[in-house]
Nucleic acid binder design. Sequence first.
RNA 1: GGGGGAAUGUCCCGAGUGGCAAAGGGGGCGGACUGUAAAUCCGCUGGCGUACGCCUUCGUAGGUUCGAGUCCUACUUCCCCCA
Length: 419
Amino acid sequence: MTSEPAFKSEFLRLMQTRGYVHQITHPAELDAACLAGPIVAYIGFDATASSLHVGHMIQIMMLKRLQQAGHKPVVLMGGGTTKVGDPTDKDSQRPLLTDAQIQENIDSIQAVFRRFLVFGDGPSDAVMVNNAEWLDRFGYVQFLRDYGVHFTINRMLSFDSVKNRLDREQPMTFLEFNYMLMQSVDFLELERRYGCVLQMGGSDQWGNIVNGVELIRRVDAKPAFGLTTPLLSTASGQKMGKSVGGAVWLNADMRSPYDYWQFWRNTEDADVGRFMRLFTDLPLEEIARLEGLEGAQINEAKKVLANAATTLLHGEAAAQAAEAAAVAAFEQGQLSTDLPSFEIPRADLDAGVVLAALAVDAGLATSRGEARRLAQGGGLRVNDKAETDANRTLDASDLVDGVVKLSAGKKKIVLVRPV
RNA sequence: GGGGGAAUGUCCCGAGUGGCAAAGGGGGCGGACUGUAAAUCCGCUGGCGUACGCCUUCGUAGGUUCGAGUCCUACUUCCCCCA
């Protein structure tokens, strides 16, 4: 924990007051460096899925803050490191992705950054790099000679990412064991290419980051710093990032803007202020006022949070549409065309569809059995009426204003639309 | 190299006498209460079938048995002791 409140540089002050800072390697030195002129900093993202999720938002926002303070952000795509797989926080090894899958993921992830950062060649313009550029080129022996000498097994074994795996009696392969070196080499490479002096990341990355800092200081005798964010959990102690229906992806084709808006709207009372500081550009005074709202009024603050966060990612129009749909659905009990929808061939509907099967197809349940159980528990609704028999057949007579409103629980709603 | 122990519902932890779809937690999902919050209480939590039911699950592969998570053999990984 860093307790020194008196940062002089705009960047660190911003980071501190908005709640991004957990640990910093050399706080005073870094502060001085930020004050002296624009610095270059990076955060790495692995390409394990075709989209990033809300759990990555804090990192993306940090890069944005960095740019806001006049510094240069580097987005590092882990094309090379993903081939090895970061063992941090994992119980066992994940299946290895193919080069083609990784490249596909990278292509699909990239777009999100353009919404948050300005890319270009200027001094504070963001740059995107793929560490496959250098990691892929190393020969094994060369890699060992150049970098292996700077790492001791004794030290590596002491890092949490390794220790956890050993403590849990789970195997850790030599491949994964090397991840740490590769991440350190990334930092060094970025230092050489761009003069990058700072690596940021989640608190679980501390070990990996510190290694890179030490490598640079040792090999190139240059200053290097690390900064980590607190582990984000909700006020009631849950890991942040999941919501009704699984991971909250950032790509619109994987999670609709409406769902994204809902995710923020469902924030716990106690988290509203913290999340507004971290995930929106709202001024601090405004946030202080909003988070001070009492009782049910804090719901207004949640809407502000949802609007601001959704606007950053999906744009203002999408945010407004999401809000309108939510207000209509939750506050007025009406339908809105902006609610998520599912299309079904008209002929199928005319022939009759089993409710359980439809619920599965529409994504409200993962199996018919689950849909049936959901119905028995009173959680499945057709046009707002609880339907306990999931075996009943729906047909055209169930259409209301041209759609069937299907809901699982109070928050998952899908409009079934015949086409 | 020798000896002893461990791996369980593929989210996690964890009980399990040869008859087990397998105790109990946590988590997740639903319901009630509220404010689309938290806390609390209740229900559900392998797949398929309307259903007596069928199928797939206890590290991997074989075997004994009417029947195996439970017994035997080999293998894999991990832990402990001796060398």
